[in-house]
Each structure stands twice: as C-alpha cells, then as structure tokens.
Amino acid sequence: MTKMHEKDAKILHDIMQPLNIIRLSCGNIRARMGSYSTEETEYLLAKLMRIEEQVVRATELLQDLKKHDDNDGLP
C-alpha cells in the first residue's frame, strides 16, 4: 500500500467526523428514551443499537485502513 496522501487523510477524517456524531447522538437518544417503557420504545432502542453497531463497524474499518497506512514502510 502506498503512503496515504494528505487529501486521502483529510477524506478519512471527514468521514470519521459524521460517524462520531451519529454514534454519540444515538447514545444520547438511547439514554433519553431509557426511562420510557413501551413496546414502541423498545423497538426504537433496538434500532438505535443497530445503527451504533454499524457506525462502530465502519469506524473500525476506516481506522484499520489508517493503521495499515501508518505502518507502511516500517521494518
């Protein structure tokens, strides 16, 4: 893998920022909804958890790409 160009690093950062906001927002919404106890709330909480799982997955993939680039050229 070639060294990540500055533009690629900026794109990676620009993708990571909204993912972080989405994850934090889901957590905040989940915390607010936690006090309610209805079938609808449980359904929505499950959906928020699924969104968070996918954001974490995407973030890990992006971090892995960056890590591979950071390690490129090391003995």
Rank of each mutant, 00 (worst) to 15 (best):
K10A: 12
I21D: 10
K67M: 15
P75T: 14
K47M: 00
A31H: 02
R32I: 09
L65D: 09
N28M: 13
L44R: 07
I29G: 01
M16I: 15
Q54D: 14
N28L: 13
K67A: 14
K7T: 08
S35Q: 10
P75I: 14
E52H: 04
L65Q: 08
I51Y: 05
L19Y: 02
P18H: 00
D69L: 03
K7I: 11
L44P: 00
I15R: 02
K66E: 07
L44S: 02
R50T: 07
R23C: 08
H13P: 12
N20S: 13
R57W: 06
R50H: 10
D8I: 03
E52T: 12
G73A: 07
D69F: 02
R23E: 14
K7G: 13
A31K: 08
H5G: 13
M16W: 04
L62A: 08
Q63M: 15
L48P: 02
M1N: 12
L19V: 07
Q17S: 11
H68S: 14
L48G: 00
C26L: 03
P18C: 06
A31V: 09
T41W: 02
E53P: 00
E42C: 00
I22L: 11
M4G: 06
V55A: 02
I15F: 05
I22E: 01
K10I: 12
K66C: 08
L24M: 12
L62T: 03
A58H: 01
D64L: 11
L12P: 02
I51D: 04
L24A: 12
M1E: 10
L19R: 04
L61E: 09
I22K: 03
A46D: 13
L62N: 04
T2S: 14
H68C: 13
Q17M: 11
S25N: 10
D72V: 01
M4N: 02
K10E: 13
V55P: 00
C26W: 00
V55C: 04
M1T: 08
P18F: 04
Q54K: 08
R30G: 07
D8C: 10
L48H: 02
A58G: 05
C26K: 04
K10S: 11
K67F: 11
